[in-house]
């Protein structure tokens, strides 16, 4: 068991009816790092993401998490193993209160989730943890608000608090700042940095300044395969990347 890398993929392939979205990706994510996955639109980033979290099944290849082959596990199973994802569009439970959003994530570990005969007051023991998590993302004063009424940036913050509630070892963030205003980007950047102190983060992100700012290592995807990998300095001076990615972006 290789302890240095928390997540590895070996020759990961995903084909959709004659179209190859992911063509043999070998990815290694170092434990404790912030790893970014970038690439032009249609490079297969989100598909890779869905494969890693088991929301899609690969056509070929293997995914190894903490030394265990998880290629054929179910999505809820890998989530319980500590590999937890966020979504591109904010994934909250809109008609639950902010407090209940976090509590429903916390309650899984309590083992009471199948208890349909008990009052929800049996979950009151979790309230302190809920508030502590809301504090982490500055949402304490919003605890009783129905989530649908939160502004977008706050929803993303809530989503992060909910994700942290299940205490992930490896956090997969799908475009954590997409659709955000300038102020919110700054706040989320700080949050990710704080969160990553005790865990590994793998993120797909379009915002290159954020990537430059946060990531220890970057993998560039193009046409479903790895084009380059390295630190931001290495990547940004790579001529192939300049042509494929920066060239496109400009």
């Amino acid at each position: 068991m290789n302890m240095e890398y928390i997540l590895e993929t070996r020759g990961l392939v995903k084909e959709f009816k004659g179209f190859t979205a992911v063509a043999g990706v070998d990815l290694k994510v170092r434990r404790g790092s912030i790893h970014a996955l970038i690439g032009p639109n249609g490079a297969g980033k989100t598909t890779v993401f869905n494969l890693l979290t088991k929301f899609l099944e690969p056509t070929r290849g293997a995914i190894v998490y903490r030394g265990q082959d998880i290629t054929w596990r179910r999505p809820a199973q890998v989530a319980r193993m500590g590999l937890v994802r966020s979504f591109q569009i904010s994934a909250v439970f809109p008609h639950l209160s902010v407090r209940d959003n976090v509590r429903v994530a916390l309650q899984r570990a309590s083992g009471k989730s199948f208890h349909f005969w008990r009052s929800e007051r049996s979950l009151d023991g979790l309230n302190d943890r809920v508030m502590a998590l809301l504090d982490e993302v500055d949402l304490r004063s919003f605890a009783d608000v129905v989530t649908v009424e939160l502004p977008y940036g706050r929803k993303r913050a809530l989503e992060l608090a909910t994700t942290l509630a299940v205490d992930p070892e490896l956090l997969l963030l799908d475009e954590p700042t997409s659709g955000m205003g300038h102020e919110d980007v700054g706040r989320v950047t700080e949050l990710i940095r704080r969160v990553a102190q005790q865990r590994t983060v793998l993120m797909v992100e379009h915002n290159l300044s954020l990537v430059a700012n946060l990531s220890d290592r970057i993998t560039v995807l193009q046409h479903g395969s790895v084009l380059a990998e390295g630190s931001y300095a290495e990547i940004s001076s790579n001529p192939q990347v300049m042509e494929a990615y920066m060239g496109n972006a400009a």
């Binding site: 809820a76 937890v84 966020s86 439970f93 208890h115 349909f116 005969w117 979950l123 994700t163």
Partner: peptide, 26 residues
């Protein structure tokens, strides 16, 4: 009682956003 139980909370989460409930391990 079912609606206002820990189980009911998960049901509502599923109603609201099933992929998210899965990603939390349910």
């Amino acid at each position: 009682r079912v609606v206002h139980s820990p189980f009911g909370q998960v049901l509502k989460a599923i109603r609201e956003n099933e992929p998210r409930a899965i990603s939390l391990g349910y």
